[in-house]
Design a protein around this nucleic acid. Structure first.
Lengths: 246, 246
DNA sequence: GACTGAAATTGACCTGGATCAAATGGGATT
DNA sequence: AATCCCATTTGATCCAGGTCAATTTCAGTC
């Protein structure tokens, strides 16, 4: 496995951009990182993989889900990112990003130490360009989320989150234009609250309200059915469907 | 003026990274953009320079201040970025960023059309790398702001904003470690409210409260004096001073 | 120095979401 | 099937910040 693997990561066509090449080459220890290695989390839901000041590398999610969270001393936390397969984290050359990366499921990441990463960037400009693209996408998403956090009501926040999960889910298993959709919600009520800047009680209440009003249906606790996506977008207060419908 | 000018932008040492080279070469029309041109806003505070779908270029602020805002149909707005001299905007190769760029003072920007920009990226990898760095910085800032929007109280939000302005101001005119600082607030109460996800009345009340409690002093409406920066950081609820003090 | 209009302050009241607390449900283990 | 443990739901109450409305301040301008 050489550094060229990132070339595959940089491929724009493949929705899960590198899962195929990474599933079999694994290491158990973060400490073993040197050049390019794979890392598998020990336990879902508990493990803090990195806090800021050791994040001197680039990592990409192979399988599983991780979250990026910011924390205040008094324990208030805000989730600032959701990492699904093919997403990147890390900050080569800069220690001290203030947020933590936490695995919420079994997680496999592939990681690049700073030096080989920089060599790669210098050698393959189209990959550097692609990485810039992806970072700009994340920046756009972060800014969209700032509108959600700053100006939307609790109900709109919930609808916005469901919209985002639904969109990602649909883009991973594309099936053309759909107006009805069923998907798994990979988050607890508490995680949703952390993402939305709400309390878990409010999340629960609003989920119940959306259910009562027929916007969503629950199959069990985690599986969501949306009979009318247009209605959900409307509830989210979005001025467009983001190209999801029609 | 050639495309190489961006090389100066890419210099990590200069706090105002390209002001020196841009002040004299100006054009009046955005429509005239082709390759690299300079653009001056007509009037502070009013002009929407670009809304999303025409933002097919990269621009960098030469002088003046601009804001990035997201808007909902019903008029709710959330500021998602503050552009000071040397900051970048734009999304070459991707139409439809959802936010608007608005000049709040006389503004001069230098702009790069998509094609020459891509040529530049391909030719000078160290600039591409530097641009990635800057984008990652913005992403970090956006994520920090998500914590402010999602979890901080009104008073903490105000203190956080003052902290950020103070820090930027101090970094533009470095003078070593300081514990006391005076600076101009380049924002109206309404703009502050849009940035913080509050109403302008709440902003005003909290400013008054901070003044009453001796955290800040006002000289006129816009000039702020902070007798004790450590106190301000404490009020902001930050777990560190971000390397600002001692 | 008086006039003007926008920006800012202050007051009174109301509400959405937080807080505190209790009840319910559902999956894993024995 | 009974038990345990969490996640979730639901209820009751409270309060930070929003809303609506009335002044006040101040930078220009004549």
């Amino acid at each position: 496995m050489t550094v060229e693997t990132l070339a595959h990561v940089g491929c724009a066509d493949c929705p899960i951009r590198h899962r195929a090449v990474c599933a079999r080459c694994e290491e158990d220890e973060l400490a073993a990182l040197d050049g390019i290695k794979y890392y598998r989390s020990y336990e879902a839901g508990q493990l803090i993989i990195w806090s800021g000041d050791v994040m001197n590398f680039v990592g990409s999610v192979v399988s599983g889900i991780a979250t990026l969270t910011q924390t205040m001393e008094d324990g208030r936390t805000q989730m600032v990112g959701l990492l699904l397969p093919s997403d990147f984290v890390g900050r080569p050359g800069r220690s001290g990003a203030a947020y933590n990366v936490v695995a919420t499921t079994d997680l496999v990441m592939c990681c690049f130490r700073k030096k080989p990463f920089e060599d790669l960037m210098a050698r393959t400009p189209h990959i550097a360009q692609r990485l810039l693209e992806m970072t700009l996408d994340e920046l756009d998403a972060a800014r969209e989320w700032m509108l959600v956090l700053g100006r939307k009501t609790a109900r709109e926040k919930i609808a916005s989150l469901l919209t985002i999960i639904a969109r990602r889910d649909a883009s991973l298993t594309p099936q053309g234009v759909v107006n009805t959709l069923t998907f798994d919600l990979p988050l607890t009520r508490e995680a949703m609250a952390d993402y939305l800047g709400l309390t878990l009680e409010t999340v629960s209440r609003q989920m119940s309200a959306l259910k009562k009003d027929g916007v969503i249906t629950l199959e069990g606790k985690r599986r969501i059915h949306v009979p009318n996506m247009a209605r959900l977008f409307e509830e989210a207060g979005d001025d467009s469907d983001g190209g999801f419908l029609s």
